[in-house]
Every structure is written in C-alpha cells, then in structure tokens.
C-alpha cells in the first residue's frame, strides 16, 4: 500500500505540492489527472527521490516503509518504479546490460539470488516479446535512437522485468499512437493483481479506456480536489478541468 499524507514539496522555494493525501491499496490501480502545472510530475519525482525537490511537509510510505528517507535506489529495491515521462538516453550503455544490472541490484538488495546472463536473457526476451518489442531493442543502447513509442515501451519492459510493488506511470501515454497505447496498457494490465499496484498519471482519459482504474483523483494546484470512480475520467473529458476544479473549490 502506498500511503501519502499531507505531502508538501517545493522547487527553488516555489510551493508545488500543497498537501497531498492519497492511499493506493495493494492490487489497485489509481489514476491522477490534472491540468498542466498542477504538480503531477512533481509528485512522481518526489516519490522517486529526484534531486532538486524539497519536501516541506508530510509523509509517504510504501508498505509502512518511509520512502522519503530512502535514496532513489533504495526506493526501487523497496518496490517503487517510476516510468519516466521523458525516458533518458544512455549512449554507450547496452539495454540488456542495463536491465540486468538493475534487476540484479534489486535482487541483491532484497537478498535474492542474481540471475546469470542466460537466465536473464530468457526472461528479457519473453517480456520483450509480450510487449511486441523487436528483440534488437535489447541490443541497442538505452533509449538511443528509439522512437517516442519505443521509449515508452522500453519503460514498460523495465517495469515488467523489475516487478515493482507500485508503479508510477508519468504520462506514459503522451506521444503514443493507438497501437502503442494498447501494447503499453496490456503490459500494465498483465501485472495487475495482488502484490502490484499502480498510479497512472495522465492528462487525458484515453489511456484509462485501456487501463481501467479503480479510483481517479483530480490534482489541481498541488492538492487533490476530487476523487471518484472510473466515471470521473469521462466526466473530466466531457466537461473539462476548469469546470470540475471550480466545482470542487
């Protein structure tokens, strides 16, 4: 269970998150929707532990562990995964090596046996196939020369291999055509079940037709102003953020 209480954070003394309360129970998928500048990406970065954000109040725990006290790699080992809105290119770093190093680092931190190259490749190939990724994407440098859709699929591939307890998908739908969107959604849906939950951050309702959330939250000016079932996403799409936010205020 991801539990966020009164979380407040700023960048360069500018308050972005102004008291977020949110709980994502084990096995559930929640969506966070909101207009640009509402703090969606900041929330994902603060949870993942990126530099440059100051947490000014509140708590965030994953299964009772204090996320905010951990280094980024410790959060990953604890089961947190962030699918980046803009996946980072790593020239000179082979994708398969990167994935294996990450998986084995996490397995080490959890006291599990590392996978050797053969075991790993078998796993990675199977997951890549499930995401309709050409096998040569494993041989290429991480995200270098990947199309927008390939980068997003590579994020989902990492998620599938690292098996997080909670995945935060930060606008994973942006820049995807409908086919890629379906593949990404299938990748997430395949992991759904006990032991996996997700926080899907998106601007549009489109992705939520394919990853149907248990709950939808509306973020505005650094606070969650409304929560509801999947129908809330349709209401936002129909009425626009301005109306819904104004009504909640």
């Amino acid at each position: 269970m991801l539990k966020i209480d009164a979380l407040a954070a700023s960048i360069e003394d500018k308050d972005i998150l102004r008291g977020i309360d949110l709980a994502v129970p084990d096995g559930e998928v929640h969506a966070i929707m909101g207009p640009n500048g509402s703090g969606k990406s900041t929330l994902s970065y603060v949870l993942a532990g990126r530099d440059g954000y100051e947490v000014t109040g509140g708590t965030a725990t994953l299964n009772g562990q204090d996320l905010l006290a951990m280094e980024p790699e410790e959060r990953a080992a604890a089961g947190l995964f962030l699918a980046f809105q803009y996946p980072v290119e790593l020239p000179g770093v082979n994708n398969a090596n990167f994935l294996r190093t990450a998986l084995n680092a996490i397995r080490r931190a959890r006291g599990e046996a590392e996978l050797d190259a053969v075991q790993f490749l078998k796993l990675a190939r199977a997951e890549a196939k499930r995401l309709s990724m050409p096998e040569d994407m494993l041989k290429r440098n991480v995200n270098v020369g990947f199309s927008g859709g390939e980068k997003k699929r590579n994020e989902v591939l990492q998620m599938a291999i690292l098996r997080p307890r909670i995945a935060i998908l930060d606008e994973t739908d942006s820049g995807l055509d409908i086919d890629a969107l379906k593949i990404v959604a299938e990748g997430v849906n395949a992991l759904r079940g006990p032991g996996f939950s997700a926080l899907v951050i998106t601007h549009y309702q489109r992705l939520l037709d394919h990853i149907v959330p248990d709950r939808v939250h509306v973020l505005s000016a650094g606070r969650i102003v409304r929560s509801g079932g999947p129908e809330l996403a349709h209401e936002l799409e129909a009425r626009g953020y301005a109306d819904v936010v104004a009504e909640a205020a």
Binding site: E71, E73, P91, G92, A105
Partner: peptide
C-alpha cells in the same frame, strides 16, 4: 538519477556512465 531509480547504486551507476563515455 535514471540509473538509480532502477535500483542501481550510485557507485555502479557512475562506473556504467564512465564506461559508456569510453565506449566510443
């Protein structure tokens, strides 16, 4: 940060990036 967010400790992450720099 990208490497660390995937669970890779900073010393290994730095080594990977230095090797990548030399790879060319």
């Amino acid at each position: 940060f990208y490497l660390r967010s995937r669970g890779i400790p900073p010393d290994i992450a730095r080594a990977m990036l230095v090797r990548a720099f030399l790879a060319e």
